Each structure stands twice: as C-alpha cells, then as structure tokens.
Simulated assay, not measured.
Amino acid sequence: MLLNRRSILVATMGVACSAIARAELWPRKPVRIILNFPAGGPGDAIARYLAQRMSAILGQQVFVENRSGGAGAVGILAASNAQADGYTFLYTTVTGVVQVPLVSKDQNFDPLRSVVPVMGIGSTPMGLFVHASTPVADFPGFIEWARKQPAGLDIGGGGPIVEIATAVLARSANVRLVYVPFRGTAPVVQAALAGDIKAFFSTPSPVITENIRAGKLRAIAVTSASSSSLVPGVDPIAKFIPGYVQDINFGFFAPAGIPAEAVVKFSETLAKVLAEPEMKERLSGFGLGLQPLAASEMARITARDAETIRKTLETTPVKFGE
C-alpha cells in the first residue's frame, strides 16, 4: 500500500520527536569515560576536568575509569567491547585507536568500525626533551650527541605513538635510537628526572614545564610542522628533516551501535564545556591545543592516520613493545 505525503510527513515527525524525547531523557544513570592512560598524566587531568564540567551541566555523574596497559590497547578494547547503551565513552587519541591491531592480539578490532567517533577536542605535538646534564642545546646538537653513543641512544616514551616517532627519526636522521617503553607521561618524566634515561618524547605537560623552569629538563625540538606555543622556544624537527610531523589528535569515541540520542546529547554537552571562556587556556596548560572537531572529521582523520601508519611501517620496521 502506498503512503501519501501527509502520512510520510507525520511518520517522519513522529520518529524525530521520539529521538528528541529520548535524548532529553539521557542520561538516566552515571556515564563512564574510559581512559586508556594511567592516572597522573595530562590526558588524565583533561578527562577528569571535562567529566567534572559535564556532570555539572547534565546533573548526572560523569566519571573517568583508567584502563591503561597493552600499549594503550587495553582501555580501547574495553570500550569497544562495552555494552553500547550510551553510558560508556572512550577518551583517547586517534593514533591510539588506529594502532590497536598492531599492538594487540585481538585481530577482531577494526579502527574504523569497532568504535565510532563522537567528537574531537584538540591536538598536540610531541616535544623532544633531555635531562639538563646532557651536552645538548638544540636538535642538531642532539643528533651529533646521539651518534657518539656506541650502543645507540635510549629514547623513553609512553606508547606506540612514540615508538613510531622514534623509529622514523632514527631512519630519517641515520642515527641509532633505542625506544624504551613506559606506561604514560608521568613515569617517563620520573625516569628522566632520576637519570634513568637521558632523552624522551612526550606530549607537553605541566610537570615537564615546571622541571624545565627548574633547570632539570631541557626542550630540544617539537614534532609539529612549525613552531608551537605548547613547546615554546625550540625549532620543529621538520626544519631539519622535511616532512617529519607527528601531531596527535585527542577526542571521544564510543562502542559501535551506541544510540544516536546519547551521542547527540553527549556531544552537545561537551561542546558547551569546550566553549567556556577559560577552556582554551586551561587545555593549553595541560599541553593540548583546543580544536573541536565533528564526528565526521574525526572519522576522516582516523582513516587518514590508518593509511599513514600503514605506509610508514612498509619502510620503517617497528617492534611494538608495551
């Protein structure tokens, strides 16, 4: 039986009103944000601050659950396998999502299908930092110093993002660099301050900035395409190695199949938080440049990064460690 235009319009309006009504009812219970980084780092600080602000707007608790380990894969897999009921979200990096199949034995995970993008919040480069006792003041000096190390130079870092950055730098600069894995920013900084490692890659963080000001650490270079206010006073590595750019995009994802009304309300609430006057400065203090992105743009970046990493690994073998 054919429906006339009025019937179709009434039916469509009914569906739309139903979706809006369901969105207005969400959330009926606390909302969980899984974070695949350990407590104490800048990612943890950002997630907890956003959760606090969202709780105030929603009138319902939004809480953070740290699920680190497995080079970041543990938390991402936990989120992807969670019930898609609209009450579990994931805060992580696009690169982290893309790299799960490379660092995990779970071959069922598909970066483009197992989780869905919800909203991007910002991006950051990584800084290359050294202990203040090293005879290094800039990037050319760093490479010269690294080449003098008989067994190669250890580079600390937290996760496969840093491992790839280290491998690409070693190949591009024709220098031996040995990646030393840590479980996040906080432990790698602690190891550097203790003198256990002399150099490391990391996203910017307040603790790094404090120790640079205290004369304990030194920034050498930044992985953005041009100079960055997040790692001030240093040249980009791209100035010396054209094309070397390692920016990291942060955002929220959710298990595939999540109700649309939950995504809509979560995104609307997050957008309100990100629009608060102090947000840009606060995120910058945590080492993140504010750059809200729609879910569609997050999906495009995820697909792009997946292809970039695939091509990188064709020419730069990486043995992923935890």
Rank of each mutant, 00 (worst) to 15 (best):
A170H: 06
P27M: 11
V74P: 00
S68Q: 08
K198Q: 15
I76T: 10
S296L: 05
V31A: 03
A82P: 08
N81F: 01
A23E: 07
A271S: 15
A186S: 11
L90Q: 08
I155S: 02
A23W: 02
R183I: 13
A238Y: 01
V207C: 00
G257D: 04
L58Q: 02
A262Y: 04
F37C: 05
A214Y: 12
A146K: 05
S296F: 01
K148G: 14
P187D: 14
A173C: 11
V245L: 02
F89I: 07
A294N: 10
Y179W: 04
Q291I: 05
F142T: 06
T93W: 02
V222S: 09
E268T: 14
T12P: 00
R147L: 09
E278V: 06
R67Q: 13
A165V: 02
G14C: 09
K148W: 04
G141D: 02
V116D: 09
P206V: 12
A167K: 02
R310E: 13
D110E: 13
F200Q: 08
I212S: 06
M1V: 11
F129A: 09
K216Q: 14
T302F: 04
G184F: 01
L77P: 07
E268H: 13
R5T: 13
A214Q: 15
S123L: 11
R304K: 10
S284G: 08
A299V: 01
A79K: 02
V97I: 14
R176T: 15
F142E: 04
D44G: 02
D247K: 08
D85T: 08
S202T: 13
L58D: 08
F252E: 00
S227C: 05
G75E: 06
E307M: 08
I309H: 07
I197T: 07
N81A: 13
A78Y: 07
G321F: 06
L270D: 03
L313A: 11
E297R: 15
P150I: 12
S123P: 00
S80F: 10
I57N: 06
Q190N: 10
A262C: 12
S55P: 00
L313R: 10
Y91E: 12
V263E: 10
G152D: 08
